[in-house]
Design a binder for these strands. Sequence first.
DNA 1: CGGCGTATTGACGCACCTCAAGGTAAGTGG
DNA 2: CCACTTACCTTGAGGTGCGTCAATACGCCG
Lengths: 251, 251
Amino acid sequence: MIAALDTLRALPLFSDISKAEGDLLVRNSRIVTCKRGQFLFMHGDRITHFYVICRGAMQVFRETPGGHEVTNDILIAGDSINADEVVARQDLHQVNARAVEECSLLEIPVSWMREHLTDFDHMAGKLLASLANRLHSMQIEAEQLTTMSASQMVACYLQKLCVLYNFDPRGFELPYTKTLIASRLRIEKETFSRTLQTLREQGITVSGTRVSIMDARKAGNFVCGECSVAEECGTHRLLHGKLDKQAGYGT
Amino acid sequence: MIAALDTLRALPLFSDISKAEGDLLVRNSRIVTCKRGQFLFMHGDRITHFYVICRGAMQVFRETPGGHEVTNDILIAGDSINADEVVARQDLHQVNARAVEECSLLEIPVSWMREHLTDFDHMAGKLLASLANRLHSMQIEAEQLTTMSASQMVACYLQKLCVLYNFDPRGFELPYTKTLIASRLRIEKETFSRTLQTLREQGITVSGTRVSIMDARKAGNFVCGECSVAEECGTHRLLHGKLDKQAGYGT
DNA sequence: CGGCGTATTGACGCACCTCAAGGTAAGTGG
DNA sequence: CCACTTACCTTGAGGTGCGTCAATACGCCG
């Protein structure tokens, strides 16, 4: 399927692309869809395309020799899937990418992408910023893996979800299965289940797929790894904003 | 101190800089030194410069509320220290940077750097590649944190060290204190100490600061997280090359 | 010698993993 | 409408790797 210029501009990476450049890109890309559970590419496959998610969510993961799946990240609309691989000029995919739900993706040949990396206004800059941000998140998370308890990580993640999807913290549905979330947090699903009990005391209640964060102060103070070191992290502040407004704390 | 053109060209980031561009950069940068234990910048400080290490090693770390130091990375000559912060347009340093040993650093004003990010031939590309590589390493390491035992991580790290510094695997000195390495691996120094015993059986012996990796096949098979999923990782292959040559396996 | 930074060793507890056994809930076909 | 399947989740019991705390040892230097 041919991508429309508007579709491109809806993606952060190409948001301010010119008409001429956009048309060029349209001619060199297409939109593909990926059904739930379907692999976009697998570990070891040759890298043929650069992908950006237009709709849906993809799980990026690796498999341990023991057959255990380790989820690297869950990417959503606007995210590029393999920018790092394209940029680092790797030959083979280092990870698997599988659709969490029905997805549509912008597909650009990797050779074309590599040739024009710095041609488009702002694209190199945006890629740089996006990689830098992802690196930063990874560092925070690696830190939290060793620093925080499982419950803290879960609480932290639920709040991030809430901000990421612009959910109402007072009540929302988990966008993914609990098994997937646990894998994303690098804990076992059993451990994940058990943490949900303990979070009740911290103002976060989960029953089934329904989550509600009652008291962000309590929950926030309990969890946020970033806050603990700096003043207040972005997630934390945003969540407070959301809840304060609803609770009538705001101006 | 003024940087010489040759000094710049010795850094991967500027290795193929033209005379004209190099001169421009020389006029907009300087060389600073940092004594062992001295902070280059601290968490919360305003970001004023972009730094590249010319000589020495720097520890990049954060502090948990409990006062525990979490080492993000140990950077050496050629590495840029805060490329991610510069590129992500952050205002304040998110981490501490402290000299592990006497260091000299190329110091470029962050404003100048941000303006000329894409001006220099290849610089944006190199920064992209470097960020992508660092991101990839972080992902591997985060995976290993949950996948591998402490001994495996230590064994893996010793081999990486060996390749990174071009040490002779049959016998070399640890370039950092054990406490620092343990912190870098996100394990406690006590745990680190204890793993060294168990590694003896795997062909790696450590006494004092002296390390020798006897049998890379044994040690390699035991440890490498990358190998376990792909065929052979770069580190592993390089190390095998080194040892095979010495052991007379090579052609 | 004493003092300091660094490293080792032991005892102990706990958070998490593992394995195993239900328990839901949604979909399918009779 | 009810059996049956399948996917997902929960709960329990038991084991363990690593963190924690505390004591000791080592090497270096003044």
